[in-house]
Amino acid sequence: MKNIWALAVAFAASVAATAAITTALAQPAPGAQLNLIVGFAAGGSADSIARVVGNRLGEKHNRKIVVENRPGAGANIATRAVIGATPDGSTLLVSTAALAINETLYRNKGFSVDALRTIAVVATTPEVFAVNPANPGQTLADFVQQNRGKEITFATAGIGTSSHIAAEYFFSQLVKTEARHVPFRGGPDATNAVLGGHVPMVVSSLSGFASQVAGGQLTGLAVAADQRVAVIGKVPTFTEAGYPGFKAMSWVGFFAPSATPSAELVRLNKEIDDIVREPAIRERLIAIGFDPMNATQPEAETYFRREVEQWRKMVQTLGLSVE
């Protein structure tokens, strides 16, 4: 009997030691560098959130955080760089709905999203249609009615963006009218074109011009979300404006090479999710037009895959493609 108890105690001690070693191996060494590769220029929403989350990760976990901007090719350059990185959780991609859109939009991008795993989707922001306050169409119904039989012109921050595809889909499939897209080099340029009266409408994710819509410099006609957004609470949803079910969201998420161990993905998800739950971080995201999102790693993966399919439907319906 004594031998049995001795063996049991020894086994328990061995299991505990193994668990301690496993836990230690799962944690990065203090000061270990974490590289966040952003597919967009500095100052944009993806870059801003990468830095906000990255700074807190560095503070809370004693890690050196390096945010690197690699814009170009619709963010595909950054994506390829991360796919080719060592899959140990030290190099992550920070991207937006562009990642889901590009899976269908680009014919020869050189990769599939199957080469990535989703760590976390930290915030979402709906597409918003807005006009100059001097425009005679100050509701979506009035704007559409006054432009019946005409070619509606709208501005966005570029070709193949979530704003561009959402607007094209809305006008061609739901309104059944001609629309001309005027792409600009960035959201501020597109917004300024409408503020200056050069283009009648701008379509953007709310994070691109939340302050102008909230402050009345732009009139929001409709928000492509399930419900109204607090920061622009007077702007109705598309369902309320007479187009039930129309929804188009952008978001910011963190991704890793697909061979990254699942335990590392779960650990990173927990660290990032804890940061997004912090009141100061949540308030900061809400103020710039984002809705903070909390989800486990599997839930984030499911969300991303649904986004790929939703944007695939829109892109294929519109017949859009980029070489």
Rank of each mutant, 00 (worst) to 15 (best):
A19K: 13
A29Q: 07
V315L: 08
V38W: 01
T260C: 14
A134E: 06
W311E: 07
N132L: 00
K247Q: 13
L57A: 08
L36T: 04
S250E: 04
A248M: 10
P279H: 02
Y243R: 03
E323K: 12
P30I: 10
T317M: 04
R185A: 15
S163V: 11
A120Y: 00
R148A: 15
G31M: 07
V229W: 01
G137A: 03
R51A: 12
I21V: 13
G215P: 03
L320S: 06
F304P: 00
L93G: 06
L320A: 05
P298A: 05
V203T: 11
K247H: 14
E240I: 02
T124N: 13
K150Y: 12
V131K: 00
R284D: 13
V229H: 01
Y303S: 08
Q173T: 08
R312W: 02
A20T: 14
P183Y: 03
G289R: 02
R305G: 07
A193Q: 07
R277E: 09
N294P: 03
Y169H: 15
S205Y: 01
Q33K: 14
P298W: 03
S163F: 09
T91E: 06
E264C: 05
T296M: 06
G137S: 04
E178D: 14
A10M: 03
T219M: 01
E264H: 07
P261D: 08
E309D: 10
A8F: 06
E301Q: 12
A120H: 07
Q316I: 01
R70E: 14
F154C: 13
F11W: 10
P298M: 04
Q138N: 09
E127V: 12
T260Q: 09
R267G: 11
A97H: 03
V82I: 09
D189A: 15
E240Y: 00
E240H: 02
L265G: 03
T118M: 11
R277Y: 06
L57I: 12
A16P: 00
I83T: 03
I83A: 05
L268N: 02
A256K: 05
W251E: 06
S45F: 01
D189Q: 15
T139H: 04
G89S: 09
Q138A: 02
T23I: 11
T22C: 13
V182T: 07
G253T: 07
L99S: 11
